[in-house]
Amino acid sequence: MTNMTHAHSHPDTCFTCAEACERCVTACLEMGDQDSKHHDLTLCIQLCRDCADICTLCGRLDARGSQFSKQFMQLCADVCEACATECEKHADHHAHCKACAEACRRCAEECRQMAN
């Protein structure tokens, strides 16, 4: 049997990031147009949705020991970085964007370490 001791923490990091992204999307959508005078949140929502999907898949692939895990970890890190960069633009005004950016940075760092 394959040793999968790392498989418990990395998928959790990915799933935590996906959850933060989903919460960010929901909060942004609930704000509707009320924030349009400050920031356009469309790109934030789009990147969070992509990031949540990629993180979920990355965590699942790693948990099952997929031969494609390392490739997805690199993609996941790239998507997380893009999402974090966008969410950070709104972090001063929205706690959910700040939390999402922080989760994305953690996930990106861990995915990069695991992919190497």
Rank of each mutant, 00 (worst) to 15 (best):
M1P: 14
N3Q: 11
N3E: 03
N3H: 06
M4W: 07
M4N: 14
H6Y: 09
H6V: 02
H6I: 02
S9N: 09
H10T: 15
P11F: 08
P11Q: 04
D12E: 14
T13R: 07
T13N: 08
T13I: 14
C14T: 14
F15E: 05
A18G: 10
C21G: 14
E22H: 03
R23L: 05
C24P: 12
C24H: 13
V25L: 06
V25Y: 01
V25S: 11
T26K: 10
A27T: 11
A27Y: 03
A27V: 06
L29R: 09
L29G: 07
E30N: 11
E30I: 01
E30W: 00
M31C: 12
M31L: 13
G32T: 10
D35C: 04
K37N: 11
K37P: 00
H38A: 07
H39T: 07
H39V: 08
L41Q: 12
T42D: 11
L43N: 13
Q46C: 11
Q46K: 13
Q46V: 10
L47I: 05
L47P: 08
L47T: 13
C48A: 04
C48H: 10
C48W: 03
C48G: 07
C51V: 08
A52V: 05
A52E: 09
C55V: 06
C58S: 15
R60I: 00
L61K: 02
L61D: 01
D62S: 09
R64G: 05
Q67H: 15
F68E: 13
K70I: 07
Q71F: 10
Q71N: 07
Q71D: 15
F72N: 10
F72G: 02
F72M: 12
M73A: 15
Q74M: 10
A77Y: 05
V79D: 01
C83R: 00
C83Y: 03
A84V: 06
T85H: 09
E86N: 05
C87S: 15
C87W: 04
E88R: 14
E88H: 12
H90M: 10
A91D: 05
D92R: 11
H94I: 08
H96L: 00
C97V: 12
K98G: 06
A101G: 11
A101Y: 01
C104Q: 03
R105L: 08
C107P: 10
E109Y: 00
Q113H: 08
Q113Y: 03
Q113F: 02
Q113V: 13
Q113L: 01
M114L: 10
M114S: 01
A115W: 04
A115N: 04
A115I: 00
